[in-house]
């Protein structure tokens, strides 16, 4: 089978390009430390989400120095927390999100950032991000989830540490009072 010399050259360059792409992505994963959403979040029964120890009352929990877990439930057409009240996190913290869906498939996107995942009933998307300076982020549902999909949005407020601490302690006290 005869292949023109120029086409052989192109074939070789194309292979180099492909290997280069795979190399860049591998660097992103191994060198820059970007982790993929995967199966580490485990599964949850969407029918009994209300009784779940974490997703039954979703929100933020401190799990160490500067380190937090956030549980988020996506349902038609709200994020809990996020929509009716903002999701609050302290500045300079490491936050692990656990996102699931109660009814249909949703998306969870922090606008203008790389924090982006699918929310699938029965599955928990677990991922960790680092928040920097105080400020605000928008969040939205980026997977069509029904006739009100376009109103499904929310807000993340990154607060100063002291401000956050007093809000958090107040939440904890309220929670204990209710129990």
């Amino acid at each position: 089978m005869e292949i023109h010399a120029y086409e052989k050259l192109w074939l070789a360059l194309a292979l180099v390009l492909i290997v280069g792409f795979i190399g860049t992505i591998t660097y992103g994963a191994a060198g820059a430390g970007i982790d993929m959403i995967d199966d580490k979040g485990g599964t949850v029964d969407p029918a009994t989400l209300d009784q779940h120890p974490k997703f039954g009352d979703p929100g933020i929990e401190r799990n160490g120095e500067n380190s937090y877990d956030v549980y988020v439930v996506a349902r038609q057409f709200v994020f809990e927390p996020g929509t009716t009240e903002p999701l609050r996190v302290p500045a300079g913290s490491t936050v692990t999100f656990h996102v699931t869906a109660a009814d249909v498939i949703h998306g969870f996107e922090v606008v203008g950032t790389n924090a982006n995942t699918m929310a699938i009933p029965g599955q928990v998307a677990e991922f960790t991000v680092e928040f920097g300076e105080p400020g605000e982020y928008g969040m939205l549902c980026n997977e069509y989830c029904g006739s009100g999909h376009h109103v499904m949005e929310g807000k993340i407020v990154v607060m100063e540490q002291e401000e956050f601490d007093s809000w958090y302690d107040q939440q904890q006290a309220q929670g204990e009072a209710e129990n």
Partner: peptide
């Protein structure tokens, strides 16, 4: 199409990625 899906291990996503990149070859040819 499911890179951001929970419930699928990263390794399977990596395999799909390499296969996809090699799928560029017939189009470049």
């Amino acid at each position: 199409h499911q890179y951001l899906d929970p419930g699928i291990a990263e390794g399977f996503k990596f395999i799909a990625m390499t296969n996809t990149m090699f799928l560029l070859l017939p189009s470049l040819l």
